[in-house]
Design a protein around this nucleic acid. Structure first.
Lengths: 159, 159
DNA sequence: CCGATTGGTTTCATTTTGCAACCGTTTGGA
DNA sequence: TCCAAACGGTTGCAAAATGAAACCAATCGG
């Protein structure tokens, strides 16, 4: 079988104290994020996901299970029918900001001028504004004006 | 050699019209994003990156080259010395919003209550506020209140 | 009742990743 | 000056992940 673990991301996190790394452990492979993207765009069934992403079927099986095990998706019964459908949990929906940020970065840096691409719009058809990290007072923040405060590292002096 | 292509992400994009997919093609593997994270946190040299991420050296070589080829990193000469250093380009720094969004999602969903983790703070030591997608008028947006507008797909009826 | 569709599973080949050893070039002392 | 350590990789090989394709049981539609 391809994959098949449940629960954690395996034995251990890549970098236990870093939320960025934990998120990468959970959805940082080529397909998981695209599955979530398509779920946000209305995909519900196995074949929905398979057609939209073009992912290999065995890998899709694994990703749907993994995302379900990690609490990003749930399986729901189709109202009138017996087929299984997948829906985003609250945690899954909460990845929206990540997907939006990636979309906007891609629009800015991964397309030549004039190259067509899909656009995220709100209920009125207006383009969703750029997501910009800002301090509480509204000042925009960058990697140059912020820093990472690490927690006390686990003490390893055993004696 | 492991890896070694330059230019595009290889032959073609996973999903050419989708900015999310293009971003995933560029930095959507387990390590690239963590390399960028560490670059934002001050990592400059090969061994800096290797020690912080714990990545295999040959893979690190590949990722640094790939990120450089894609314009997220540049090699700069050390001011007094001959050792090569890597620095983020503007495009690389612009991934800040993506990293912040991932960090915040991780904090909310990938840690048990009370489990310690690193925190991103601004110049005054204040925690960076949550990044929330919003319409132009400030109304928060979610995947339920937005939709993806696709470009006219390339017409394939060849006759 | 028949054929198509759905939601997988299995097998096997290819690719990617990781580990460990090795290497030439600085760098830093004694 | 010479030695040792560090730096920035490269190489070979084993293990794991991925992908393509065939196969399958259980519906679904007519």
């Amino acid at each position: 079988m391809t994959g098949g673990d449940t629960g954690g991301p395996g034995p251990a996190w890549t970098d236990p104290g870093c939320p960025v790394a934990r998120t990468a452990d959970l959805v940082g492979d080529r397909w998981s994020l695209l599955v979530v993207r398509d779920a946000m765009d209305g995909a519900r069934s196995f074949t929905d996901f398979q057609r939209r992403t073009g992912i290999a079927r065995n890998i899709l099986t694994d990703r749907l299970r993994r995302l379900t095990a990690h609490g990003l998706l749930t399986q729901v019964e189709a109202p009138s029918g017996r087929r299984r459908l997948y829906a985003l949990t609250e945690a899954g929906k909460d990845l929206f900001a990540v997907i939006v940020a990636m979309r906007q970065w891609g629009e800015r840096h991964a397309f030549d001028a004039g190259e067509p691409h899909s656009v995220l719009v709100d209920g009125h058809g207006a383009r969703v504004p750029d997501l910009v990290p800002a301090a509480a007072d509204g000042t925009p923040l960058t990697s140059d004006t912020t820093s990472v405060r690490r927690p006390r590292p686990p003490d390893v002096t055993a004696s």
